[in-house]
Amino acid sequence: MELRLTDTQYRVIIGNCYDGLPNESCGLLVGPTVDGVPTGVVTEARPAVNADASARTYSVASKDMLRAMRSAEEHSCEIVGVWHSHTHTDPFPSPTDVRTSVDPSWMYVIVSLKHGAPMLRAYNIANDTITELSVAIVRD
């Protein structure tokens, strides 16, 4: 599977990650599925509150989950993934990310702010196995 983000969605995600500094930031991806499996297309990138307000962990505020689920339902879509930032580490799932991963079909996007330029990577995490996904940034 390939994660396809529009220019605008990409900018929303990166902007959200910088806005949250010094804490980790997070948000939800909404998009279509076929037989319950995301297609890779994202229709909405929805910034969420990091309820942990922490530089080392994140929890998507449950109210933001509720809003995203409703929005997805209105558009015959689903929540298909989540993004969060790693402020001082590489864009690779941590043991915490693997242990707490929710849905094996989801796309897990990690944005590292460790270096000068942000690095965005995407993964599937299923049964403790991490698989990197290709990412395409497409014009709006």
Binding site: L28, Y58, H86, T96, D97, V102
Partner: peptide, 12 residues
């Protein structure tokens, strides 16, 4: 009644 998974993680 809406059931939502708790979504969490982080660099730690």
């Amino acid at each position: 009644v809406t059931i939502l998974p708790a979504v969490a993680g982080g660099a730690l």
